[in-house]
Design a binder for these strands. Structure first.
Lengths: 183, 183
DNA sequence: CGCATAGTTGACTACGCTCAACCCTGGTGG
DNA sequence: CCACCAGGGTTGAGCGTAGTCAACTATGCG
């Protein structure tokens, strides 16, 4: 397990490089980029602080994308074989890793579902309902609203507007980042 | 590990039921539905043949959604504790399960990425590039453009317009449903 | 007491949706 | 062989909503 500091624009690894490690962002933000035959970039998403990436590299011979730092970032890397044998030998670790993957998969699917909804109003309502813990009515959004807006797929401004609109309609009650649903 | 056959409309389990198992669809299709406090459904996506679902139930006390069969379906269920202890005791199984989760997470993220692209133009380009077989430049869309538009998440009209626009810009060449990329 | 960052609000723009008419192709029957 | 029809596909016009840019406020931190 080693640390690497990347400057903005610095490349961590290239698509088709042999896959040797799995990574996590300790601080900063990196972008995953996909190249086609023609050399055009077709796909990128950003990985934020605290997230793993290149998990799929554990099971592939080569990386399927190129990773570049968007802003100065500190990256933790775990050599692939070390990580795999650790997983095989330590049931607690592998269970914990499975749990992380399962939760992230679940969350990602929810986001995908969200993207099918056109209206910002409905999308935000849907998001709030989904994020509210079972049997509770209040959810506290403990991340910058910017980021949440990004997850939902709308601009921060519209997110802000929509929240105040919903509050005016008495559909939600809001105190800072604690939001209560009044169904 | 047991099998269950569901008729169309039959319910496998309800939201808030104690989580006792993890499932896979052997044949058919089931729908995952989310209920709010007020009883309104807020979320659903479909699980196709060959896919696991309720993985997150492994780590939760209760199910977070209700599962209903859309069409007659055969479901395989693995009791939660059995599956968890099997994972802990069998490194090969846990590694295989991790691999599945990692791949599905990756694929889901790709779909999410596509939906995240605002501009119809860029979204269509991205889609075409992703759909084009490796080492080829031509893709043939052998389904009604309507359906494809639905997959991409834009209206058929806009899809049509966008294709002709791209053709005018010489970015693509189009003969009926065969499309060639001119990067 | 500033400074940086997050969040809010306003004005304007632009893009995609909707509805509608039209075109084109393939199939069917007279 | 043509007339008709149905469906997918294309194009046009107008509208609405979310994005953008900008100014401003609030909050947290040194």
């Amino acid at each position: 397990m080693t640390y690497q500091d990347l400057a903005a624009g610095e490349i961590l690894f290239h698509q088709n490089d042999p896959a040797t490690a799995i990574f996590a962002v300790e601080s900063g933000r990196v972008s995953l980029i996909h190249y086609t035959e023609a050399g055009k970039t077709v796909n990128h998403y950003s990985v934020m602080t605290g997230e793993y990436f290149a998990e799929v590299a554990l099971f592939n011979e080569i990386y399927v994308c190129t990773v570049i730092a968007e802003i100065p970032s500190r990256i933790v890397s775990f050599p692939k074989q070390v990580f795999l044998t650790a997983l095989a030998q330590d049931p607690d670790l592998s269970t914990a890793f499975i749990e992380q993957l399962a939760r992230r998969l679940h969350y990602t699917k929810l986001l995908l579902e969200l993207r099918g909804i056109r209206s910002a109003r409905e999308r935000v309502l849907h998001y709030l309902r989904v994020m509210t813990p079972p049997n509770k009515k209040t959810v506290s959004l403990n991340r910058p609203l910017k980021q949440i807006a990004g997850d939902i797929g709308i601009s921060p401004e519209v997110f802000s507007r929509t929240l105040t609109q919903l509050q005016n309609e008495r559909l939600i009650t809001r105190v800072r980042r604690r939001i209560t649903l009044n169904d």
